[in-house]
Design a protein around this nucleic acid. Sequence first.
DNA 1: CATGAATGAGGGTTCATTCAT
DNA 2: GATGAATGAACCCTCATTCAT
Lengths: 182, 182, 182, 182
Amino acid sequence: MRADAERNRVRVLEAAEEVLARDGLAVSMRAVAERAGVGLGTIYRHFPTREALLQAIVVERVRRLAESAGPLLVAADPVEAFFAFLTRVVDVSARKKALADAVSGAGLDPKEGLGGIGGDMRAAIEALLLRAQTAGGVRADLRMPELLALLSAACLGAERNQWDDALRDRTLDLIFDGLRAR
Amino acid sequence: MRADAERNRVRVLEAAEEVLARDGLAVSMRAVAERAGVGLGTIYRHFPTREALLQAIVVERVRRLAESAGPLLVAADPVEAFFAFLTRVVDVSARKKALADAVSGAGLDPKEGLGGIGGDMRAAIEALLLRAQTAGGVRADLRMPELLALLSAACLGAERNQWDDALRDRTLDLIFDGLRAR
Amino acid sequence: MRADAERNRVRVLEAAEEVLARDGLAVSMRAVAERAGVGLGTIYRHFPTREALLQAIVVERVRRLAESAGPLLVAADPVEAFFAFLTRVVDVSARKKALADAVSGAGLDPKEGLGGIGGDMRAAIEALLLRAQTAGGVRADLRMPELLALLSAACLGAERNQWDDALRDRTLDLIFDGLRAR
Amino acid sequence: MRADAERNRVRVLEAAEEVLARDGLAVSMRAVAERAGVGLGTIYRHFPTREALLQAIVVERVRRLAESAGPLLVAADPVEAFFAFLTRVVDVSARKKALADAVSGAGLDPKEGLGGIGGDMRAAIEALLLRAQTAGGVRADLRMPELLALLSAACLGAERNQWDDALRDRTLDLIFDGLRAR
DNA sequence: CATGAATGAGGGTTCATTCAT
DNA sequence: GATGAATGAACCCTCATTCAT
């Protein structure tokens, strides 16, 4: 039963992930259940509340993203690593709805405020920023609040307007130019 | 009766404007009707659909914003004028919900795509951009798609995270730095 | 429109009344809507909440019952009038579910406590009691709390066990014997 | 395994007993299972249906109550014994929810009708009544149907309105006065 | 024309019961 | 035998939209 339950939990999460990526935070529980090929009750067994399910997905997404920063933290070129990570976050936002909301820290939990993205994510960004600044490639006066505001904005824009790769690159290049040390 | 009808149309629009600014795109038709002191049916007489009403407001807002660009088009300092207008748009976005969506041209009508903001707005921005580039204050290679993407992103971020004036200024300064000619 | 709305309000109340009388407090809103030949939303237009609808019915029932005490308050035989009213309340309880709950003051609003039946009802009973005591037909030491407890119990019993007229009379006779002055 | 099964049956019954006493007939099967420290399926192994489980408890309760009448059947004062037993039943009703329903014989199984309380209970009451009547302390014309109706009503009232000891005594005194031989 | 009452699909959630493990 | 995960009907309630008045 443990195996079954775990399998279903995963199916629910995957289905919710997909539906969320496609339709955004407005997903209905029924839609998730159908996508997962599972009864409504099964979702509620694993997640007490709609909110909880969406949170779980979004937290996991952010966790994975933050985790993916690992190699970049020891990359040879700290500046490139910094910009690469920001690009990655925006890229995922363009492909998966509701990530931008997560990065923005709003929508799911209004209290979260600007820096409401999980501590790991924030820490990863901060570490990458510090390395890039230390390496002299990023303005020394760049602070987290503005950086997060910029990242959040880029993610929201990328999701909302479905930036394609080319537009994303050109737009981020402009932003990144503003962040570089002169 | 023509006068009556027109008066009601205006009342509905004004009420919807207010409610939309306060509560965002999730406004209910009933809320608008109550705010306007008008029956639900009256709204539907003037606007066939919830979508249509919101579109109308958003179009009007954008129109007014575009209109406000007029003086800036003949301002003494084209570069300052260009940045001032962008700042104004972001500023309004932070104060009035759903403007960011308008500028993004998405959410209401997904077909609209990136440049879905009304032609006037787009034209105003383009004209300001051209003047600023000609004056040599803005990178010559800045093109409209990226500029609009940036503006849209900033608006969304400002609305979502309720940028205060200080954060807005600091964040926009970073963006603007990336747009300046070197 | 006023006429229509009022007609529907009445239909909803009548339907709810019937269904409530038949099935008790567990009625579903859908059952009421179907019985009334009305959409679900129509119920919610008139009554903001399930609770509110049931309250309204029950309050009206109690009000009518209390009102029906009027003539008895000036009846020639105060003692007979007193017992007649109690009998009537129990009688209605046996025929219409949820009245007993109302008289018991529980189920709908737990705060109500023992004397939670509307003030009018309570006042009517108290007045009838006083007249009957003054006339010397009812024990002078009978107080309201016990009287209401007895009445509530009889109503609950009559509803639950569907007392027929004969059983009701015999049972109430026993109770009334205990209330009579010796 | 027989022992195991029997032990579980008892645990389920005890848990259901407690939960029922506290929360009334609305108990959920899950609540019972958790209280019993047993899986949901285990309950269904022993009781085919929610109804059946509740029935079983109620039957057991009534059985124990009936059993407790034993000493009273040979008590020195038959009249006092009679009233004492009735008081005890009402007392338990006030403390343990769903007993009143049991005594009323309704709610769980509507077919049961008035005398639906187990034969033992009924027999105990009848025997006590007979002794009390023979002793001349209770009206000779008191019959079982009315007596059970009264008892049922008192139990329901005591449970619903949470009679405290004082109110219970005063109310029962009134009822008992109506039952006494003159 | 204006009104707002009516509609009913759809939303989140609960829970008795079944059955794979 | 025991477990508890899965099921899905049912519940209460909201809201865009229609249409009788």
